[in-house]
Simulated scan of single mutants.
Amino acid sequence: MPKTSTAKQTTKTEKVVELLKRSKGASLEELTKATGWLPHTTRAAMTGLRKKGHTVERATIDGVSRYWITTGT
């Protein structure tokens, strides 16, 4: 019997977008823990989001780089 699921599973990219849309954004460490990706893969995913029209900003706060989405889809 085939499995049926009514709940939509969140992709890792969707999880990254969710974290980046928070008011405080997310650190690279938070993003890698949430996805299980290596840091270079996580940064590449943010580049992909930029190519899809998102504006990803970066700032250093208390010595830690934080990223967030400011505009886009």
Results as ranks from 00 to 15, higher is better:
residue 21 K to D: 03
residue 33 K to W: 07
residue 55 T to K: 13
residue 44 A to T: 06
residue 42 T to P: 02
residue 34 A to Y: 04
residue 43 R to V: 11
residue 49 L to W: 03
residue 25 G to H: 03
residue 45 A to F: 04
residue 30 E to K: 03
residue 36 G to R: 09
residue 31 L to T: 03
residue 16 V to H: 06
residue 59 A to V: 10
residue 59 A to E: 14
residue 16 V to P: 00
residue 55 T to L: 08
residue 35 T to A: 06
residue 59 A to T: 12
residue 64 V to T: 15
residue 22 R to T: 02
residue 5 S to V: 08
residue 40 H to M: 09
residue 13 T to V: 13
residue 16 V to G: 02
residue 63 G to I: 04
residue 40 H to C: 05
residue 13 T to H: 10
residue 41 T to Q: 14
residue 12 K to I: 06
residue 12 K to F: 06
residue 65 S to D: 06
residue 7 A to G: 01
residue 16 V to F: 04
residue 14 E to K: 14
residue 54 H to E: 06
residue 31 L to R: 03
residue 45 A to H: 14
residue 69 I to L: 11
residue 59 A to P: 01
residue 70 T to C: 04
residue 20 L to F: 14
residue 19 L to D: 01
residue 22 R to K: 15
residue 4 T to A: 11
residue 49 L to M: 05
residue 58 R to A: 15
residue 63 G to W: 02
residue 21 K to N: 12
residue 59 A to W: 10
residue 64 V to G: 05
residue 53 G to M: 11
residue 32 T to Y: 04
residue 66 R to M: 13
residue 72 G to I: 06
residue 29 E to T: 11
residue 6 T to K: 13
residue 25 G to T: 05
residue 21 K to W: 03
residue 66 R to T: 03
residue 54 H to C: 00
residue 47 T to A: 12
residue 41 T to S: 12
residue 1 M to F: 11
residue 2 P to Y: 08
residue 33 K to C: 05
residue 5 S to G: 12
residue 20 L to I: 07
residue 57 E to C: 00
residue 50 R to T: 07
residue 66 R to I: 04
residue 30 E to H: 03
residue 40 H to S: 10
residue 28 L to P: 02
residue 9 Q to S: 11
residue 27 S to A: 08
residue 18 E to K: 14
residue 36 G to W: 09
residue 34 A to E: 06
residue 53 G to K: 12
residue 33 K to L: 11
residue 8 K to I: 00
residue 10 T to P: 01
residue 18 E to H: 13
residue 14 E to V: 02
residue 15 K to C: 07
residue 69 I to M: 02
residue 21 K to V: 02
residue 38 L to D: 05
residue 20 L to T: 04
residue 5 S to Y: 09
residue 11 T to C: 08
residue 26 A to I: 00
residue 52 K to T: 00
residue 62 D to W: 06
residue 10 T to N: 07
residue 60 T to E: 14
residue 47 T to K: 12
residue 36 G to A: 06
residue 22 R to F: 01
residue 55 T to D: 06
residue 34 A to I: 02
residue 46 M to S: 05
residue 45 A to I: 04
residue 7 A to C: 06
residue 67 Y to D: 02
residue 32 T to N: 07
residue 44 A to Y: 09
residue 39 P to E: 11
residue 54 H to P: 00
residue 63 G to M: 13
residue 20 L to N: 08
residue 2 P to A: 11
residue 64 V to I: 15
residue 48 G to H: 15
residue 46 M to H: 08
residue 58 R to G: 08
residue 61 I to D: 10
residue 57 E to A: 09
residue 51 K to V: 00
residue 6 T to A: 13
residue 34 A to L: 06
residue 45 A to V: 05
residue 11 T to F: 10
residue 14 E to D: 13
residue 61 I to L: 13
residue 37 W to P: 01
residue 71 T to S: 15
residue 31 L to F: 06
residue 49 L to T: 01
residue 48 G to T: 14
residue 35 T to R: 10
residue 46 M to R: 14
residue 49 L to Y: 03
residue 44 A to E: 12
residue 53 G to W: 14
residue 67 Y to M: 07
residue 6 T to Q: 10
residue 44 A to W: 13
residue 7 A to T: 13
residue 49 L to H: 02
residue 36 G to K: 09
residue 3 K to V: 07
residue 72 G to M: 11
residue 68 W to K: 15
residue 57 E to V: 03
residue 70 T to E: 14
residue 7 A to H: 12
